[in-house]
Nucleic acid binder design. Structure first.
Length: 330
DNA sequence: TACACGTGGAT
DNA sequence: TATCCAAGTGT
C-alpha cells in the first residue's frame, strides 16, 4: 500500500476527537492552528472553546477591541499570535468580505499566517493539495528517510515540502495533512515512540535501523539569558500598584508589578523568591512588600483595586505572585 | 540565518 | 531540579 493510503486509513481510525476538527469552518481551523503553534493541544483546548464563544466569526473578532483580545489570550503565551490574528481578521473583513481566501498566496499574506499555517488551512479547510510542514512532519519525514539535514534550516523545510507534496498526490488533503501531524503527535513522538503501532513502520528507515533517537537532526539552541530582578508589591486601601512602563518589549499590552534591576531593599519586607522561565530568558525575582509611602509613583503606574485585578491583562509571572500573595496575606 | 517571542507538562 | 519541548511567525 502507498504511504498516503496507510496514513489516511490510520488517521480515520485512530485520530483524536478534537473539538476544533468538528465544524470544518475555515475560521475555526485558522484559530486552532494559531493557538496550537508551539503549544500543547491540551493547553489550548480550553482557550479555543472560550475564544469561539467570545468571537464566533471573523467579523466578531475583527470588531473586538485589542485589549479584550489580549485578555482572552492571557496565559497562552506568544502574544503576538493574538495581535496578528486580530489584525488578520480585520484584513479578511476589509479585503475578502469576511471569508478566508482559498488561495495559498493570499493566505500567506494575512498577518500571523506563515508557510505552515497557510498549508494547514488550505489543505484542511479547503481540501487543497498544500503541504503543511510543522515540527511533527519534519520529525516523521526525517525518520522515514534518515534525513540528515538540519530541520531548522529553510532549505530542509523546502525539501520536506516538496516530498510531502509528492506523497499527498490523489489523497484526501485534509486527512493526509492531519494524519501526518497526528502520527507525529501520537506515534512518532520525540521520545517514547510507539513504532509497533505505526502504519508506516514497514517503510521507515529509522525504525529498520533502530536509529529513531538520532532524528530529526537539529542544532542546539542557545541558553536563555538570566536576569536578577527586585519585584515589589505595594498595597494601599484594598488596591495594588501595577505599571505599564517596562522597557524590555516583553508582553506588550500587559500590566506588571513594578520591577527593578537595582533597588534599596533594607526597609522592605522580603516575601518570596520566584523563578520564571521564558523561552529566551529567565527572571529570578526577589519579591518585597513595600509601603505606599516608601514608593514614588512614576508615569504609567497606577493603583488597581483587587476586584479589577481579574479583569486586567497581567503577565503570568506576576499574576502567580499576586495570587500567592493574596492567598497568604489577604 | 539567527534570534526573539511564553507557558506548562513530561521525564 | 534540569531539560526538553508542543500543530511557527516575524524580523
Amino acid at each position: 500500500m502507498e504511504i498516503k493510503d496507510e496514513l489516511t486509513g490510520w488517521y480515520r481510525q485512530y485520530h483524536r476527537k478534537l473539538i476544533f476538527r468538528e465544524s470544518g469552518d475555515p475560521y475555526a481551523i485558522w484559530v486552532s492552528e494559531i493557538m496550537a503553534q508551539q503549544t500543547r493541544i491540551d493547553t489550548m483546548l480550553a482557550y479555543y472553546e472560550r475564544w469561539m464563544k467570545d468571537y464566533p466569526t471573523i467579523e466578531a473578532l475583527a470588531s473586538a477591541p485589542i485589549e479584550k483580545v489580549l485578555k482572552s489570550w492571557e496565559g497562552l503565551g506568544y502574544y503576538n499570535r493574538a495581535r496578528k490574528l486580530h489584525e488578520g481578521a480585520q484584513m479578511v473583513v476589509r479585503d475578502y468580505q469576511g471569508q478566508l481566501p482559498a488561495n495559498l498566496e493570499q493566505l500567506r499574506a494575512i498577518p500571523g499566517i506563515g508557510n505552515y499555517t497557510a498549508g494547514a488551512i488550505a489543505s484542511i479547510a479547503f481540501k487543497m493539495r498544500a503541504p503543511a510542514v510543522d515540527g511533527n512532519v519534519l520529525r516523521v519525514i526525517s525518520r522515514l528517510l534518515l534525513m540528515a539535514d538540519d530541520i531548522s534550516s529553510q532549505k530542509t523545510h523546502k525539501k520536506v515540502y516538496d516530498l510531502v507534496y509528492d506523497l499527498m498526490a490523489d489523497s484526501d488533503p485534509s486527512d493526509f495533512t492531519q494524519g501526518l501531524m497526528e502520527l507525529g503527535a501520537l506515534i512518532c513522538t520525540p521520545l517514547a515512540w510507539k513504532c509497533e503501532q505505526c502504519p508506516l513502520k514497514a517503510k521507515c528507515q529509522a525504525y529498520a535501523a533502530g536509529r529513531q533517537a538520532e532524528f530529526p537532526v537539529k542544532k542546539a539552541k542557545k541558553a536563555p539569558a538570566e536576569v536578577d530582578l527586585i519585584t515589589i508589591i505595594v498595597p494601599k486601601e484594598n488596591q495594588l500598584l501595577l505599571c505599564r512602563d517596562w522597557q524590555d518589549g516583553l508582553m506588550e499590552g500587559f500590566m506588571r508589578l513594578p520591577q527593578f534591576t537595582e533597588l534599596k531593599t533594607e526597609h522592605l519586607k522580603h516575601l518570596m523568591k520566584k523563578k520564571h522561565v521564558f523561552s529566551h530568558r529567565i527572571w529570578h525575582m526577589d519579591v518585597y512588600l513595600a509601603d505606599a509611602s516608601q514608593i514614588e509613583l512614576k508615569p504609567g503606574w497606577e493603583y488597581v483595586s483587587l476586584e479589577q485585578l481579574d479583569n486586567l491583562s497581567i503577565v503570568t509571572a506576576h499574576r502567580k505572585i499576586i495570587d500567592q500573595y493574596r492567598r497568604k496575606y489577604l
